[in-house]
Design a protein around this nucleic acid. Sequence first.
DNA 1: GTGAAGCGGATTGACAGACAATCTGTCAAT
DNA 2: ATTGACAGATTGTCTGTCAATCCGCTTCAC
Lengths: 236, 236
Amino acid sequence: MKTKLDLRVSPRTVQQEVVEKLRAAILSGLFQPGNRLVESQLCGSLGVSRPSLREALRSLQAERLIEIVPNRGPQIPVLSWRDAEEIYEVRELLEGEAAARCATLITDEDLEELSDRLEAFRRACRRNDPAEQINSATEFYAIILSNCGNKIIEEFEGSLLARVNFLRARSMSLPNRVKNSYEEMSTIFAAIKSRNAEKARKAARQHVANARDSAKKAFQKIDQLPALPKGRARRR
Amino acid sequence: MKTKLDLRVSPRTVQQEVVEKLRAAILSGLFQPGNRLVESQLCGSLGVSRPSLREALRSLQAERLIEIVPNRGPQIPVLSWRDAEEIYEVRELLEGEAAARCATLITDEDLEELSDRLEAFRRACRRNDPAEQINSATEFYAIILSNCGNKIIEEFEGSLLARVNFLRARSMSLPNRVKNSYEEMSTIFAAIKSRNAEKARKAARQHVANARDSAKKAFQKIDQLPALPKGRARRR
DNA sequence: GTGAAGCGGATTGACAGACAATCTGTCAAT
DNA sequence: ATTGACAGATTGTCTGTCAATCCGCTTCAC
C-alpha cells in the first residue's frame, strides 16, 4: 500500500470513539433491525455521558445507520426488500464504475495485494470459514475502491455496504453463493489485471447483480420468521 | 402530484430546526468555504443551547456540509478542484441513471410539471434573473430525481448538489452558460418525453459534463482571488 | 533581526444534574 | 370491546461547570 505514513496525530475524541464502537457493533450484527437503542443503557455500557452519546447518535443517524424517531429514540432501521434492492441497484452502478477506473489506475503493487485477498478468500471458502470470507471479500473490494481514483465513490459505497451488511452474512450462507462469489471475483480480478476497463465494469456489475439475487432469497427467508411482536403496525 | 393527505404530525424538535436552518444558511452562501462556525455565536443567533447546537453540527458533519476539527471547531470545507471534480464525476453517473429511469417511469402528470419548470427556467433566462434560474433548474432536477424510482440516487444526488452548491451560482454567471444550460435541459426533457432512456442518460451526462467544465472555469476565477489572510489583521 | 520559549485569552470537549414533554402499557369504567 | 386515565420509562432540552487545547502575542536569548 502506498499509505504515506500519515504523521498527523489526530486527537481522538470520546465522541469519535463512540461513533466507531457503535458502528462496529451495528455492523457486527450485535443490534438487529428493529432493535431500539436506549440512551441510558448505552451510556452505561460505553461509559460516556449522555451528551457525548447523543452527538454520536446524530452522526450515525446522518449516515442512515440508525433512525431516530422524535420522543421515541434511536433504533436500527427495518428495510423493506425494495429498500435493499435500491441499494443494490446503486451499488451496481458505483462498483461497476470503480472497477472500470481501477483497471486503468491500479498500481502493480496493489494489484499484487488484490491477488492476495482473492487467494485469502479462496482459502476461506475451502475452510468454510464465514467470518474470514466476509473479511477477505471486504478487503478485496476495499482495494478496488481505494484505487478507483474517486473518494466520493469510496464514501458512498462504504455507506451502502454498511446498510445492507446484515444481508451479506446471510446470503453468503446460501448454497453455492460462496463458490459463485469466488468465480465472479476472479473474473473481476482478471479483467483488472488485463487492464480492460469495460470488462471489469461488466464483471463487477454482474457480481453485484448476483449478490442482489442471493440477498433477495436470504431476505425472503428472514421475512418468513415470526414478525417482531413488539408494538402494533404503526401507520397513518 | 399524488400526495395522499398525510395526517402524520411530525413533531419538530429544536435540533431538527437547527439543522435545517444551518443547512439553508450554508446553501444560501451565508457562510463561505473556510469560514469558522463558532458555537457560542451560533447559539446566540439561533437562540438554542449548546448541546442542541452541537447535535445539529454533528448531523451536518456527517452530511459533509461542515468539517469539525477536534479542538478547533466546525468550519465550512474548502474543496480543491479535484474534490469538486470527483463530485461532478459521480453526479454524471447518477444523474445519467436517474434520467434514464425517469424516462420509463415518469407519469404524464409529472411530465407536464417538468415541462413547466423548463419553461420557468427559460423565462428566468430571458429576464436574466439568477435566483430564479437556480430555483427553477433545481426544481427541474428534483422532479427527475423523484421520478427515477430510487430513493438512494435521490439522497446521494442531494448530498452532492449541496456540496458544490457554491460553484453552481458562480458558474451560472459565466457567459453563455445559462443559454447552453437551457439547451441541454431541453434535450434531456425531449428524451424523457419521448421515453428514450438511453438518449436521456446521454443527454443528462453531457449536461453534467458541461456543468463541470463551467465550474472549473468559475473555480479558477475564485482561486485567483487573494487567499484569505490567516492572521493578517495587524494594527495597533 | 531571527528564532525559541512562554504566557493568556478564546474556544472546544466532556460531564453532571435537572425538569418538562411525550410515549407505552396497564387497568378500571362505560 | 372501546374509552379514559394513570404511572413508569424514555427522550428533548437546558444550565452550569471544568479541563484540554489552540492561537496569537510578548518576551528573551543569540
